[in-house]
C-alpha cells in the first residue's frame, strides 16, 4: 500500500535536489533546469494531496503551475540567449554588474 507519506518524501527529495542545483551550480542552464525540477516536485505534492483528499482542485492547480512553467521557460531562455549574445557567458557569477 502506497501512502501519502511515500509521495511526500519523494516530492521533498526532488525539491531539495533542485535547491542544491540552484545553490551549488553556476551554469545558468543547469540553474534553470533545477527550477523546473522544483516546480515538478511541487506539482507532485499537489496531485498527491488531491488524491488523498479526494478533491480534484489539486489537478487544476497543477495545470496552472505547468502553464506558468511554460511561460517562465520561454522568457527565461530568451533572457539566457540575450545574455549569451551580449556577454558570451552562461556563468552566473560573471554577471555581477548589479552587485559591484
Amino acid at each position: 500500500m502506497v501512502t501519502i507519506h511515500h509521495y511526500m518524501v519523494l516530492s521533498a527529495v526532488l525539491f531539495f535536489i533542485g535547491v542544491f542545483g540552484v545553490l551549488f551550480r553556476r551554469n545558468l542552464i543547469v540553474i534553470f533546469m533545477s527550477i523546473e525540477l522544483m516546480l515538478n516536485a511541487v506539482n507532485l505534492s499537489f496531485v498527491t494531496f488531491a488524491r488523498y483528499t479526494q478533491s480534484m482542485d489539486g489537478h487544476v492547480v497543477a495545470f496552472f503551475v505547468m502553464a506558468l512553467a511554460a511561460a517562465e521557460a520561454a522568457i527565461g531562455l530568451a533572457i539566457l540567449v540575450m545574455i549569451f549574445r551580449n556577454r558570451s557567458t552562461v556563468q552566473a557569477d560573471d554577471l555581477s554588474l548589479m552587485r559591484d
Binding site: E36, M66, A69, A70
Partner: peptide, 26 residues
C-alpha cells in the same frame, strides 16, 4: 507517478507540456 495517483489529465499534460514542449525548448 501521476498516472498512479489517478491524475489522468495531469499525466497527459506532464508528457505533452513538460517532457515534450518545455524540454525541447531547453
Amino acid at each position: 507517478l501521476f498516472a498512479m495517483l489517478h491524475a489522468e489529465f495531469v499525466f497527459l499534460l506532464q508528457v505533452l507540456l513538460y517532457a515534450g514542449a518545455i524540454m525541447v525548448l531547453i
